[in-house]
Amino acid sequence: MYELFVLGELMTGEKHGYMLQEILKNAAGPGRQISSGTLYPLLSRLVDSGLILLRHEEESEGGRLRKVYALTEAGRARFHELMVEPIESHADSERLVNFKMVYFQYVTKDVRLACLKQYLAHLQAIRTYVKNFEAQLLKHRPEPAMQRVQLLRVFDHRLHVGEADISWVTQEIKRIEGEE
């Protein structure tokens, strides 16, 4: 996922490592921060694999060298591979879709639609799972009753959030399908 982010950000132009880290901190949200210990080894691997280039630029203050990264043609191709990769159902699916959506301007309409349709299927599968679990809970009525009631409230919340997500993604699919 972070590989997609780095390559996607470099689609917009050269960036230094600190700038990439700051953008990712904002994109990932307050609960998910990327450390230098994660980002810089990733950047090194991308340089070593020929997906990005590294050049040194002298900073105006302090005379230190700043590492500036740029995308190669191989990196551009890898970015497109990552954008068309299917979205698997896991805990980070939503974050991955959000990252992909940021870079939709760099891919075709078909790729955007495939991504959103995969995410819609993921959301619908979660809704089905929650409804089935809820039905089992109502049928078997496990004890303690207070915990069961609270769990049903959690399911109700998850269903409401899921319905809102499904509605938004469905509308976005229709909007993109209507584009020329």
Rank of each mutant, 00 (worst) to 15 (best):
K174S: 14
L120W: 04
F104C: 04
S167L: 12
K109Q: 15
L138N: 10
F99D: 04
V107E: 03
D156R: 08
V154M: 00
V149S: 13
V102C: 00
Y119F: 14
M101A: 04
L120P: 00
A121P: 08
K109W: 08
L138Q: 14
P142I: 01
L120D: 07
T128P: 03
E94G: 07
V169F: 11
A125N: 08
C115V: 06
L120C: 07
Q105F: 03
F155M: 12
I166D: 10
N98F: 02
Y106H: 15
L113F: 00
Q118V: 10
S93T: 09
Q150G: 13
P142V: 04
T128Y: 05
V130A: 09
R158V: 03
V154Q: 05
K131H: 05
E143Q: 14
P144D: 11
Q136E: 13
I173D: 13
K174F: 09
D156H: 08
Q136L: 10
L151C: 07
Q105V: 06
E163K: 02
A125D: 13
Y119E: 02
H160L: 12
I166F: 03
L96F: 04
V102G: 08
H140M: 01
E143N: 03
F133C: 11
F99K: 00
A145L: 10
F133I: 12
L138D: 11
P144Y: 00
Q171D: 15
I166M: 07
F133H: 09
K174Y: 04
V161H: 01
K139R: 15
W168T: 02
E134Y: 03
L152W: 02
E94F: 03
F99R: 04
R158E: 13
Q150M: 13
F133M: 14
L113K: 08
P144R: 13
Q118G: 13
L123F: 09
M146A: 13
V97Y: 11
K131G: 06
H157K: 08
I126Q: 12
A135W: 09
V130I: 15
V149C: 02
L116F: 09
D156L: 06
T108D: 15
Q136R: 10
E134T: 11
K117P: 04
E143C: 00
I173T: 06
V161N: 00
Q118N: 14
K109S: 08
L138Y: 02
V169R: 00
R141E: 15
L123M: 11
Q150L: 14
W168M: 02
C115I: 04
R158W: 08
E172W: 10
L151K: 11
S167G: 11
V169K: 01
T108L: 08
E94C: 00
E172V: 05
Y119R: 03
R148S: 01
P142Y: 01
L152H: 03
I173V: 14
F99V: 08
